[in-house]
Amino acid sequence: MIVALSVADWSLALAGGALIGLAAAGLMLAFGRVAGVSGLVRDALSGRAEAVAFVLGLPLGALLVQGLTGGGSVAFASPGRLALAGLLVGIGAGLANGCTSGHSVCGIARLSPRSLAATMLFIAVGAGMVALVGVPAP
């Protein structure tokens, strides 16, 4: 079954995506830098001021949108599950040298076969995991 979405739902999803693409295009146009969040986090941890600035920008931008739109409440997985999921995502992004932003946005925009392979596996295994452990109760 497919969830029915309104025109507003689709528009927000598309507009949000365009903003993500704009940020990626901005870093690429200005500095030739791939907007891969895992790589930027690694650079931030090694003390590069520009990477720290990007990482700090993420919650600031999100907070601004939440403030403007009101944004409903959001539910998260249990603490243990969050930590385990984060650990898997960190190991995976470290080995694959990129995450959803670097591979699924910037890499696919470049038509990189490597990033296409990574993205297909992200989605296939993610879907398998959701089928396996189920959708958390609301």
Partner: peptide, 16 residues
């Protein structure tokens, strides 16, 4: 500019 790009990225994530 990195801060601005991060904020636009974060805004896009929240909006979408």
């Amino acid at each position: 500019i990195f801060l601005l790009c991060g904020a636009v990225f974060g805004a896009g994530l929240a909006l979408s």
